[in-house]
């Protein structure tokens, strides 16, 4: 996993609530057995005017110039600015892979859906929850100034910009540690191998029906 320490970037303001994972990456792209290559289909239904297929050459598709992702002035944004309940709906991690593949490294919102939120950390995409007031200000600024930029410092748990000053955000210590160092969670869990075995041995005695094989 890619580590995350600090980032200074402009924002892409996506001004609608409840953006679901079907919108982030529509289902036809879930047929891939890889983790890469999803970026070109990020927000596919909003981004293109004609329907898309996984094996299609996207360069020939008509784009919706009204959709903010297609506005060249926001092309370099590495931070997505979102509204309430971002990432709701299905558990598809493809949504996170698509955002990373497109070039986003962080998402700022007032709230996230649970599974999406957790998927972000597994892949090095930093989800940041800020107060509504700060998010509103960032929307105002970035909608008016495409190059409006903010700085994120994960170690200090801070987001800084001239409109909001310095805002701190919460993050679970363990997740922070993994993100800062790009650590593989499986490796960490396996350091508890003995405890897992011991738990399992107890369970086989107390609840043997959990081990039945149909």
């Amino acid at each position: 996993m890619q580590s995350f320490t600090t980032l200074t970037s402009s924002l892409l303001p996506l001004d609608r609530p409840n953006v679901d994972t079907d919108a982030i990456i529509p289902k036809q792209y879930l047929k891939s057995v890889k983790k890469s290559g999803f970026g070109i289909n990020l927000f596919d239904d909003w981004r293109y005017l004609d329907p898309g297929d996984p094996d299609q050459d996207n360069s020939h598709r008509r784009i919706d110039t009204d959709f903010i992702l297609n506005n060249a002035q926001y092309k370099n944004a590495q931070i997505l600015l979102a509204r309430d309940n971002y990432g709701c709906g299905s558990s598809r991690e493809h949504a996170v892979w698509a955002m990373l593949d497109y070039g986003f490294r962080a998402v700022i919102s007032t709230s996230f859906a649970d599974i999406f939120f957790s998927n972000c950390y597994k892949n090095g995409l930093l989800p940041i929850v800020l107060e509504k007031d700060a998010v509103d200000k960032l929307f105002d600024e970035s909608l008016n100034k495409p190059d409006y930029s903010v700085s994120i410092d994960l170690d200090r748990q801070q987001v800084t910009s001239d409109a909001i000053g310095t805002c701190s955000f919460d993050i679970d210590e363990f997740r922070k540690h993994c993100m800062l160092n790009g650590l593989d969670e499986i490796g960490i869990t396996l350091t508890y191998e003995d405890k897992i075995h011991a738990y399992e041995d107890k369970l086989k005695v107390s609840s043997p029906w959990l081990f039945i094989n149909g």
Binding site: S91, R92, E93, I115, N123, E185, I186, I188, Y192, I196
Partner: peptide, 22 residues
């Protein structure tokens, strides 16, 4: 509960998940 693909791999490899109580 539903999990993402990284967690699918985590459960396959360790039979466990690192979770915080809801």
């Amino acid at each position: 509960f539903g999990i993402g693909t990284s967690e699918v791999e985590h459960v396959l490899a360790t039979q466990c998940l690192l979770l915080r109580k809801t």
